[in-house]
Design a protein around this nucleic acid. Sequence first.
DNA 1: CATATGTCCTGAGAGC
DNA 2: TGCTCTCAGGACATAT
Length: 277
Amino acid sequence: MPELPEVETMRRGIAGAAGTRIDRIERTPCRRKPIAIGPSFAQLRRRAEGAQIERTDRLGKRVVLWLSTGDALVFEPRMTGLVLCAAPPTNEHLRLRIILAGGKTRQLLYWDRRGLGQVHLHTPQTYEEQLEAALGPDALTITADDYRESLGKSARVIKVALLDQRAVAGIGNLYAAEILHVAGISPRRQCRRLTRRAWHALAEATRDVLAEAIRYEGSTLSDGTYRNALNQQGRYQNKHRVYAKAGERCPRCNEDVIKRIVQAQRSTFYCPRCQRG
DNA sequence: CATATGTCCTGAGAGC
DNA sequence: TGCTCTCAGGACATAT
């Protein structure tokens, strides 16, 4: 479940691909249903092969390679996708191989166990229209004003709203729980009921938690799926405060026990004592 | 318009 | 042991 910290860690891991040229793009012999490639695999080859990778970027939960043609090659890992430049966890779920020339990084791989992820080649125009326009401010740099502008009047509960990429880009189920715990805000609180002070706390917690998670190279959960670009586990799972910790004592108050509830068909973990705001 | 629900997909784990 | 069932959740399509 790569969220912002995991995607940013993958991006950093393949940053050495900048300056190389895409020699060839291959679909790997994965017998499962092929992942979605836009506009098509043939188009991707025709337009990207021979292009230079100018720089790497991240947009919300997507890894972006800007090409010398002006196009953007965009990886969207969703649940179980990985962008690697080293051997993947298994060969069975390897979906795409991009062979590079002219640098130390010899290849980029897209691996995806469940295959819900997608790879798209965007022109500057479709990148702007379909991606940037559909995403809210980046969570890593979001401000209290950004939050109040996008969610200040919403009737939704804050936990569910944080998962809406149009409101804020980069947060998923895991980090929504961690951020709300640090901010001391109840996941059940309606957005429009949050005070100015709460929005400030939320913005600060958002930036702090995500930056800290990046320093620990993201979270590898018990299913072991997430890996960085070198197929190594993240370490932030050891720092989690509430996620998947139902029944354990809250590390903040050391009194109450972490609770699990379901909101919008997703698990939410929180401390009833620390998160009353 | 805003918000809620269904869908895709595979593998882990529970229960019998 | 081996089967079936449920669950995990990111983003989008469809429904209310």
